[in-house]
């Protein structure tokens, strides 16, 4: 049934069918320091076969956004203030664990930053894959093993049989990440959420992981949400880019537009950092650090680090000003009539 709805792998490029629709997501946590505003009023859509990049620094709300898409964070303590999530035309209702379980892992696969930590340290890799397949697809290991080995090989794991016998700590970070991707591939999901999958890997492994994601997308026809602190990482895969700062989306647009004509000063700073631009004889440096999400300023959260900030930025929160259809920036400099 699901297979029938799926786009054929040959038909690449995003369709017009909306797979995931996130509206007004606001997520907060209690802390001794006051309530942490992790995600504030985040809305976006992912179409079938489309790849979205979510880019921002640590503490910008990227991971909490991703975890909230299938209501993965326990509540309490998490306070889901507002937000509606529709997946494949149906509301994903929070608390409806039965329906959520049918979606998590099977239709929405998550690849975490630290793949080794996502694997259970006390079981061999093979038995963890077997358990997943038994639960998700009611497959017996003996029947599934050839497909598992084939999938691991296609994920550039040469010694696939050997890896199945190993424990997670006995493989390198790059191999652990490839195992995680292979597990996602085996589930044949509709949506893959990859949260910083290339961080902490060397450049070759980074490239490999990105190419594997492309491979998943092309073979399975799934949509991808790729989360990274590095614009350069999402450039290769993403059709659309969302820039997050202080829990909000501060700029959105097609990947091509974001790179060619970044509007928000924060996006420009990310781009300059990513390209390691020089300023005189020093590297360009974005000063300061991300805001404290328990004490966000009343105005634009980036104002304190922004070279273009004026008085209004510090007192008033800018809207998402539309630039062209599907393209906006949460910055007064992008307000109609400005610049």
């Amino acid at each position: 049934m699901i297979e029938a709805q799926r786009q054929s792998a040959a038909d690449r490029g995003p369709s017009e069918v909306v797979l995931l629709d996130v509206a007004g997501l606001t997520v907060r946590f209690p802390s001794p320091d006051g309530e942490v505003h992790a995600v504030e009023d985040v809305s976006f859509q992912v179409r079938r076969g489309e790849s979205i990049g979510i880019v921002g620094e640590s503490g910008s709300g990227k991971t909490v956004t991703c975890m909230s898409l299938t209501w993965l964070l326990p509540s309490p303590p998490t306070r889901y203030v507002t937000g509606r999530i529709r997946f494949d035309g149906k509301d994903l209702r929070r608390g409806d664990e039965r329906s959520l379980r049918a979606v998590r892992g099977r239709r929405v696969a998550v690849i975490f930053q630290n793949a080794r930590a996502a694997l259970d340290p006390s079981y061999r890799i093979g038995s963890q894959i077997a358990e997943m397949l038994a639960l998700q697809q009611r497959l017996r290991w003996a029947d599934a093993r050839p497909r598992v080995i084939d999938t691991l090989r296609r994920c550039n794991i040469a010694d696939a049989e050997g890896v199945l016998e190993r424990y997670p700590h006995q493989v390198s970070g790059g191999v652990a990440q490839r195992v995680a991707i292979a597990m996602a591939l085996l589930a044949r999901p509709d949506l893959v959420i990859a949260d910083e999958p290339t961080t902490a890997l060397d450049l070759l492994s980074q490239l490999e992981v990105l190419m594997l994601l492309e491979q998943i997308r092309d073979e399975v026809g799934c949509s991808i949400i790729l989360v990274s602190h590095d614009l350069a990482v999402v450039r290769r895969i993403a059709d659309q880019v969302l820039i997050m700062y202080g829990g909000r989306i501060v700029e959105r647009g097609s990947t091509e537009e974001i790179f060619r004509d970044p509007r928000h000063p924060y996006t420009r700073a990310l781009l300059a950092s990513s390209e390691q631009r020089m300023q005189g004889d020093r590297l360009y440096e974005l000063p300061g650090h991300t805001p404290d999400l328990a004490h966000l300023p009343p105005g634009c959260a980036f104002a304190a680090r922004c070279a273009f900030a004026f008085d209004r930025c510090r007192t008033e929160l800018p809207d998402e000003f539309a630039i062209t259809p599907g393209r906006s920036a949460r910055c007064f400099l992008s307000e109609a009539g400005h610049g």
């Binding site: 620094e57 640590s58 961080t199 902490a200 602190h229 590095d230 614009l231 350069a232 700073a269 990310l270 950092s273 990513s274 390691q276 020093r282 590297l283 360009y284 440096e285 974005l286 000063p287 650090h289």
Partner: peptide, 17 residues
């Protein structure tokens, strides 16, 4: 700097220099 966000790598590299 490999574990750091790209946006703060330059801060550390400039500091080291």
């Amino acid at each position: 700097v490999s574990a750091l966000d790209v946006s703060i790598r330059a801060q550390i590299l400039n500091l080291l220099r």
